[in-house]
């Protein structure tokens, strides 16, 4: 049981990562793929934040008697990663809009067929 609780967060991380990864490789819809990619990235946020947690800790904002505090460094790193994630999503969406305009579809298979018939 103790191993279960100790590693539970990381197993969920692996599970979410694999779910996201599955959506990216198995789905043919370009938007769905990006959603999968987002789930994939979010799972990594969970990995980082989980490792920073300290038992009975509080948020790393210093107050009288606040200790122990959880580790602030993973928080900072993940703030950056979230920004990177939304940036990638925005560019992916812009690409999808252009692909729709150029091909009239956002299904991977239809796009392949159109390109192959050239």
């Amino acid at each position: 049981m103790s191993t279960f609780l100790e590693l539970y967060n990381y197993w969920i991380f692996i599970f979410l990562m694999m779910t996201g990864f599955y959506i990216v490789i198995a789905q043919g819809n370009l938007i769905k793929k990006v959603i999968g990619l987002n789930i994939f990235q979010t799972s990594v946020f969970l990995l980082y934040i989980s490792m920073g947690k300290v038992a009975n800790g509080t948020a790393p904002i210093l107050i009288e008697g606040g200790a122990p505090y959880s580790n602030p460094l993973p928080h900072v790193l993940i703030l950056t990663a979230i920004v990177v994630g939304v940036s990638t999503t925005a560019v992916a969406m812009a690409l999808i809009v252009r692909i729709q305009e150029a091909y009239g579809t956002i299904e991977e298979q239809d796009i392949h067929e159109q390109d192959a018939s050239l």
């Binding site: 990235q41 990594v44 993973p74 990663a81 990638t88 999808i96 390109d115």
Partner: peptide, 24 residues
């Protein structure tokens, strides 16, 4: 070019996220 960029975006992001996991 659009689909090439999209494909690169997906694979590149997976690559970068893997690097992020490794660093973590």
């Amino acid at each position: 070019a659009l689909t090439a960029a999209y494909q690169y975006l997906i694979m590149g992001t997976i690559g970068a996220t893997f690097i992020l996991i490794g660093i973590g």
